[in-house]
Design a protein around this nucleic acid. Structure first.
Lengths: 247, 247
DNA sequence: AAGTGGTCTAGACCACGAT
DNA sequence: TCGTGGTCTAGACCACTTC
């Protein structure tokens, strides 16, 4: 009882550091402001740079900071709310400029996607790559898988791979009368190709949204979208987007 | 053209290591099997332990591995699908043993929650703490916030804080006719209290699900649930849960 | 060229679980 | 008590952006 510290569990330095930095961000820094560099911060707090980096990593994971190699560490704006469950079928809103078709080819889907599509492994399916942009920033990279026999007009497409072909496939998809949709969200890390589209390093944390579209009892298509976990808050539900976040 | 490596971008060691380990996990290890310890793995691959750990961290983030201090590193089972959007109101399924009431008190909600509840900051609201268990494992810790004036019978509750009180509050909530719900999902890191409930270390990655329940144009309650990101895949939608995952 | 964050090393010690 | 993963250090070099 002599000291107040004796019975406390030793808190890791990086954890304490994270708390201190977090409070400093709230009170002393404006959004977009750039922090002192890592070497100076580490010296200022009297820790090794690796320890300081552990704290920064956590804060970046929580969307409080943004770090860019060669540039510096800046205070991130609050995460933007991104609707992923609102529209009945995300490819139907042709007037929504959010999704940019990038490319399209025929290819073998990953084994897990083949199972969801209910086609034998190794089957060639149409793939469409799209990028979702918001506030001038790429926030998601999506790969859409469509077996040729799920949409009538799909076999007739002979446009060479590229953005025009992607638009053609999406046009055919809009003819389908969908009846249902299932979605799942999980944590993942960006593969090299997705990372490039998202303007992040490979391995960056992403929220992987897998959507299965069904019509007439069949699986029509499967979409695997990877959202930047640092900048996005995914919103579901019929009402307007949830405006604020907790913790 | 003399060598095939000349023009390739140098891939970080930990990234390559992660790929190698990932393939080894697929082919040479069974679920639950325990891996050699970190010092031996590092030696075997000829890298420093810190580098090896960077690869293991990634694999743990993707749900492929489970690491426990004092025990070792084991191969994790596939993530379990957890329904978070199916039931109209998650507190209505009284017969569902998934959620275990833990505690209940009156307290000030965090500022962000107060905004969602549309009450002035500093207002006392009822809080209910619950734990969600699946397959004998804790997967989520939830904090439910209910302003006293949103449910008629709530002011009459005078049970002392504890699990019985939590059950009493939930009982009152079930009387309310809900009209809507909004949800959002984002990445976070477990606070110390949540981490304890989830049997993880503080800072562990979690999926934070914020739900706003509305009735008669008002916000009735707000729930903030933190799900273990390593073991859970959150499922939304009316159909049966999406069975498989991609990437 | 200078400055930033990203990767990597080779150690050390600590907290925890099993024995 | 021993073995495990978790934390921490003090350096080094690399990749990238900016000037």
């Amino acid at each position: 009882m002599g000291t107040t510290q004796l019975e406390t569990v030793p808190e890791p330095k990086y954890w304490h550091l994270k708390t201190v930095l977090s409070e400093a961000l709230d009170s002393e820094f404006a959004i977009g402001e750039i922090l002192p560099n890592e070497r100076e911060l580490a010296a200022r707090f009297g820790v090794a740079r690796a320890t300081l980096r552990q704290a920064l990593e956590q804060l970046e994971l929580e969307g409080r900071l943004q770090r860019r190699r060669g540039v510096g560490t800046t205070v991130a704006p609050p995460r933007m709310g991104v609707a992923v469950g609102d529209r009945a079928h995300s490819w139907e809103d042709a007037d929504d400029a959010a999704w940019q078709p990038v490319d399209s080819t025929e290819a073998e889907p990953p084994a897990a996607v083949a199972r969801l599509l209910d086609v034998p492994p190794g089957t060639l399916v149409h793939t469409v790559r799209r990028t979702r942009v918001s506030h001038g920033q790429p926030i998601a990279a999506e790969l859409l898988y469509v077996p040729s026999d799920s949409v009538a007009g799909l076999t007739a497409i002979d446009t060479p791979p590229g953005a025009p072909r992607a638009r053609a496939v999406l046009r055919e998809l809009r003819r389908v009368a969908l009846e249902g949709r299932e979605q799942s969200v999980e944590l993942g890390s960006a593969r090299a190709d997705d990372a490039k589209q998202l303007d992040r390093l490979p391995g960056a944390p992403v929220l992987v949204v897998t959507t299965r579209y069904t019509a007439a009892g069949h699986t029509v298509a499967v979409a695997v979208a990877t959202y930047r976990a640092d900048t996005c808050r995914l919103t579901f539900g019929d009402g307007p987007a949830v405006e604020l976040l907790a913790s």
